[in-house]
């Protein structure tokens, strides 16, 4: 019964995002833009939550996977978009959608592959090493992109321009719904106990027959995949991307959402992503204080309420005993 509910919720979310998308021309551009930002940040926060929250690892490089997705998908639409459209029978909503879907998937899969490459060596080690390695990976990606040839496919320090504006309300919120469903279904299944066991006690987990390394890598790969999708959506929303947009501070933004919402609490993390994105938008004039407030929040939260503002237990359904 519970399982049908989740299927239904997913379908409903997809239908609603399609519906809103179709009449999005009625919406004010400014508010639509904020909503799309909110959606992208929800995808980032929910996917990072699988790694940092449910699985108890600590990645500080989510923006790097976002960058891989953004660059990967943009290269598909920029370099191959035209020929793909031709094959699909000329420009039109269908050809455009198929092209974008392929681009997003290429971005997501590239990010997932990077997640696998980074995760394999570092996930054998303790959490604080992973934090540094992912931070380092974030830096490497940025340095490499910045030092590419300005005329080449990556555009050097200036990045890429003229990316087609394919991202719509539907794409963002459909992806967000799929991310939430996927991670929720995974974590709430018997299979998903493995993630939680890794977080709680790796040695006990191994003793219960759980391949902890595989779960850690899996969480990391899935998290990176959705970060890659978010990157693709971001690129085709902004239409220009540059390496600086995916620096360490972008990763910190997502970490703050996860910690504020409550590590391992899907609802909390979504709420935090929404609230912080909207706040950021309205506090633009106070940009210089923003990070001071964020950093103080991190410190105070860890001392006063490390479980987050809306911790996981709060929303757990009371099961019949």
């Amino acid at each position: 019964m519970k399982h049908h509910t989740s299927h239904f919720a997913l379908l409903l979310a997809l239908a609603v995002s399609l519906g809103v998308s179709l009449c999005s021309s009625q919406l004010d551009d400014y508010y639509l833009d904020i909503m799309l930002n909110v959606g992208i940040n929800v995808i980032l926060a929910v996917s990072l939550n699988l790694v940092n929250g449910h699985t108890g690892q600590f990645s500080l490089g989510h923006a790097a996977f976002m960058a891989v997705g953004a660059y990967g998908s943009s290269m598909v639409t920029l370099e191959m978009g035209a020929s793909m459209m031709r094959v699909l029978g000329g420009a039109g909503p269908v050809a455009e959608s198929v092209t974008f879907l392929v681009a997003l998937l290429v971005g997501g899969v590239s990010a997932a592959v990077c997640g696998w490459i980074v995760g394999m060596p570092s996930l054998r080690l303790r959490g604080d090493y992973l934090a540094i390695v992912t931070l380092g990976f974030n830096e490497i990606i940025r340095v490499v992109l910045q030092n590419t040839n300005g005329d080449g496919p990556f555009g050097g320090a200036l990045g890429l321009k003229g990316i087609p504006a394919y991202t719509s309300f539907f794409w963002v919120f459909a992806t967000a719904a799929i991310a939430i469903y996927t991670i929720g279904a995974l974590v709430n299944s018997t299979y998903g106990r493995g993630f939680l066991a890794v977080r709680d006690d790796e040695i006990a987990g191994e003793s219960m027959g759980i391949n902890t390394t595989r779960y850690k890598v899996l969480a990391f790969v899935i998290g990176s995949f959705f970060a890659g999708l978010a990157g693709g959506l971001y690129a085709h929303l902004r239409t220009t991307i540059s390496p600086e947009g995916f620096n360490f501070l972008k990763s910190v933004d997502v970490v703050v959402m996860v910690i504020l919402g409550g590590m391992g609490s899907t609802v909390g993390v979504i709420v935090a992503a929404v609230v912080l994105t909207v706040l950021n938008e309205f506090l633009r004039d106070f940009e210089q204080y923003r990070m001071i407030v964020f950093s103080l929040l991190l410190i105070v939260m860890m001392i006063v309420r490390p479980q987050g503002l809306l911790p996981a237990g709060l929303f757990q359904r009371r099961k019949r005993a």
Binding site: S295, L296, I299, M302
Partner: peptide, 11 residues
Amino acid sequence: VLITAIGVSLL
């Protein structure tokens, strides 16, 4: 503690 340290760094 690690998260706090990141917070202190940014602060």
